[in-house]
């Protein structure tokens, strides 16, 4: 039983960390523009495609002589840096072309624009990879990442899992430094709270909005690389479900709140894993045979039911500020 719970927590934590990284991109953009950047799921997927390409080109092909080719961690580092640059730049371009011209339009207009960008990016990815005859992208994950490093409570912790936790920790640390303890972070927060006043404090709000998209895109790109290594079968639509979940995580934590996005991601990951593992309880408690009917495929249903229930009782999210409407 203890092993069962520990396993759920570990796996939930891992997937939740991924959601958290992606959720940060949604929540930061929402913070400065009150816009849900639906294209973020594709920006994230672009990170995955970058990883696919880098590992395809730089890593030795499966079955090659062991010890040949580039060091897998070096390839990983190249993939990370490339994804940060590509996805950060992509996000800046998206904002510049699709959102900024609509800055003063009603809120729904840029939202539709975001959905449009999302669909366009899916097709661009399909086109680019499809041209080369690839419709399913099987990521060439080096053995170093799939190997089990150690086992805790019957749960295998693999190379990618450790890598994921370390990368996420470093990024969250950096993000916290940037947002809470630096000039640009203060400026971003000022723009998020009151763009006009921020302007009168000498802050160029367009610059800060671009910077926010850069940070969100870079985080999404890193998330994409890690996702591609953990779930190495991608197609042009692979971004959608993790994107929706990360967005839900951001809402769960309180959209606009950075710690909220992290907490929301972790909570959603753990809930999802718990519900996905319910059928496993049958082996521990044979009397609960009905649980066997709750297959792992239902984990998404369960996760979203939990989300709805939490939001009914806490509409502003776990760490969101209460927006009481004045009548």
């Amino acid at each position: 039983m203890e092993n069962f719970v520990t396993g759920i927590l570990i796996n939930g934590l891992l997937i939740g960390t991924l959601y958290a990284i992606i959720a940060l991109g949604y929540t930061m953009v929402y913070g400065v523009l009150q816009l849900i950047n639906f294209a973020h799921s594709e920006v994230f997927l672009t990170g995955g495609v970058v990883a696919f390409e880098i590992f395809r080109v730089l890593s030795p092909a499966p079955g090659a002589e062991p010890g040949t080719g580039m060091n897998p961690y070096l390839v990983f580092a190249v993939a990370l840096v490339t994804a940060i640059v590509v996805c950060g730049a992509l996000n800046i371009v998206i904002e510049r072309l699709a959102y900024r011209p609509l800055r003063n339009a009603p809120k729904l207009v840029p939202l539709i624009s975001a959905i449009g960008v999302s669909l366009i990016l899916q097709d661009v990815i399909k086109l680019l990879e499809g041209f080369q005859g690839r419709f399913q992208l099987a990521v060439n994950v080096p053995g170093a990442f799939t190997r089990t490093v150690f086992t805790v409570a019957d749960t295998n912790v693999k190379g990618i899992d450790l890598t994921l936790l370390i990368v996420a920790a470093v990024m969250l640390f950096g993000l916290n430094r940037l947002v809470n303890h630096s000039r640009v972070g203060r400026a971003i927060r000022a723009v998020a709270q009151d763009r006009v006043t921020a302007g009168l404090m000498g802050i160029d709000s367009n610059r800060m909005i671009s910077l926010t998209f850069l940070i969100g895109g870079a985080l999404g790109g890193v998330g994409g690389v890690l996702f591609a290594l953990k779930f190495p079968n991608l197609d042009p639509y692979s971004g959608t479900i993790p994107g929706i979940k990360a967005f839900s995580a951001a809402v769960l934590g309180g959209i606009g709140s950075i710690p909220g996005a992290v907490l929301g991601g972790l909570v959603l990951g753990i809930i999802e894993n718990f519900l996905g593992s319910l059928s496993g309880l049958v082996f521990i408690f044979p009397k609960l045979a009905f649980l066997g009917a709750i297959k792992a495929e239902y984990k998404d249903v369960g996760a979203f039911i939990a989300l709805i229930v939490i939001l009914i009782f806490k509409p502003s999210g776990l760490l969101g500020r209460n927006a009481t409407e004045k009548v």
Binding site: V184, A190, M201, L211
Partner: peptide, 20 residues
């Protein structure tokens, strides 16, 4: 204090790379 630090923005130079 943070409100005043925001006001200080235009007189400071360090960018996000410096901060990281």
């Amino acid at each position: 204090e943070e409100n005043i630090l925001v006001g200080r923005h235009p007189r400071l130079k360090a960018g996000y790379v410096d901060a990281l």
